[in-house]
Design a protein around this nucleic acid. Sequence first.
DNA 1: CATTTGACGAAGG
DNA 2: CCTTCGTCAAATG
Length: 145
Amino acid sequence: MIYLPEPQKEKLKKKLFSCFRNAEEGAHRIKGIIGDISNYFKGENVHFNYVLDLKSMTYFQKKVYRETMKISYGNTRCYNWLAEKVGISGGARAIGNALGKNPLPLLIPCHRVIRKNGMLGGFSSPGGIILKKKMLLMEGALAKV
DNA sequence: CATTTGACGAAGG
DNA sequence: CCTTCGTCAAATG
């Protein structure tokens, strides 16, 4: 499970520990991921290559996530592009639904999926659309101003 | 099974 | 800008 940064650190901590009572002790086992994430938010071009546990997701969602993971750092694609990729051209809205349930934001870089008209679309993690924009800016994915 | 609901997109005001 | 309509997987009833 991934929680992206929230304005209030304590609130986030509380949320984490309510899910994982042994979070502190187990942390060393996921040092790699923690390091990667922290480097990412320092502005580094981090690749993220981990085997993800997606067995609780539907077949369709897994297909969407697999394609989403092919969008590399600093690039963006639109919802309909993904729709084509998973074989439902015209189903952009269904893509949005699937991405809205992304259990592993950042590792599954749904923030790189934006609207065709240049709008950013949505972002369901706590940081919301503000955070999505920040991440894209950091990646240098937003061309102008 | 029938409806409703969206992180969409195109077309036409 | 805005509205309407087509679209499709999931959630809901």
